[in-house]
């Protein structure tokens, strides 16, 4: 039993980190109607930015996380302005195709750029809080605790903004009907920029939070990226609620599955495969995902 609880707790913490990445992807999808295939790389960028903030300038690592979110937000705004805006001005013929290729291409570009700029070596960001906390039989690394609380705080703040503020209302309006939103005077370009910026900033924040726990390297974004793709299909494309629940679910399945499902010597090897198998099952049984309503496509 103790063992099960420890595993479940580990899964929960991992799930919270996934949530941060996946919510960003879901937000982008709900407003811009595109999948950001460079999402994992935005996560990686956030990790490196916060690493350099805290090691070069001696900024407190927790503050560096928020600064890196700002930097990745600006990066996202620039990406949106230079590469995605043509989608909404009619300059691009086949929007779906362009959106997939350009975001994937940007991801590959960021990967290679990071490899050249930062080198292939693994780096570790500074600890948020060193040491461990023990409650009874449970021992948890303090970094993981801090990260969990920060992730929860960021998610709650985001939900509050989306549901209670004017900006949130505008975001939802554009996500439901771009033309109608334009008629009531919402500048949809600005909302696009905002949604994309915030979406990738969440991924960047997650990357920065992962730094002290799982270390950072130019290729670190690939797996979180793929997992966030799995999660948004699992939860339903464009559903924030679905993204949160999907993330927690995936975190638990990976943590418990690698122990209980397969024979233990193999579990670890297949750990990163559980998500993909889950995805195949969901697509087979309920293609719209747990909370998705319809197949969405950019028109």
């Amino acid at each position: 039993m103790d063992f099960f609880v420890a595993q479940a707790l580990n899964g929960l913490i991992i799930g919270l980190l996934y949530a941060l990445i996946a919510i960003g992807l879901s937000l982008i999808f709900s407003v811009l109607k595109l999948v950001n295939f460079a999402h994992g790389e935005c996560c990686m960028m956030g990790a490196f930015v916060s690493y350099y903030f805290s090691t070069l300038f001696g900024i407190n690592p927790l503050i560096a996380v928020f600064l890196s979110m700002v930097v990745v937000f600006l990066l996202g705004v620039a990406m949106q302005y230079f590469f995605l805006r043509p989608l909404y001005t009619g300059a691009v013929e086949r929007k779906d195709e362009y959106a997939i290729l350009i975001t994937f291409g940007l991801g590959i570009f960021f990967q290679n750029l990071a490899m050249s700029l930062f080198g292939p070596w693994t780096k570790k960001s500074q600890d948020f809080l060193s040491g461990v906390t023990s409650i009874g039989f449970l021992t948890v690394d303090n970094n993981r605790l801090v990260v969990s609380f920060v992730a929860i705080a960021i998610v709650l703040a985001l939900l509050l903004i989306i549901n209670k503020t004017f900006v949130g209302k505008a975001l939802r309006a554009v996500s439901q009907d771009r033309d109608a939103a334009a008629i009531v005077g919402i500048n949809s370009h600005r909302i696009n920029m905002l949604a994309f910026g915030v979406g990738v900033a969440l991924a960047g924040g997650a990357g920065a939070l992962i730094g002290p726990i799982f270390l950072i390297s130019p290729m670190m974004g690939i797996l979180p990226g793929i997992k966030s793709f799995v999660i948004i299909v699992l939860g339903g494309m464009g559903s924030i609620k679905g993204a949160i629940i999907g993330s927690l679910l995936l975190g638990e399945i990976e943590s418990l599955g690698s122990i209980y499902l397969l024979d233990p010597t193999r579990g670890l090897a297949y750990k990163n495969a559980f998500g993909v198998l889950l995805l195949a099952i969901v697509l087979l049984v309920k293609p719209t995902g747990l909370f998705g309503e319809r197949h969405v496509r950019m028109e």
Partner: peptide, 11 residues
């Protein structure tokens, strides 16, 4: 329809 093929194939 939509980006499902891209999403699934990358995974």
């Amino acid at each position: 329809r939509g980006p499902y093929l891209a999403l699934f194939t990358i995974a």
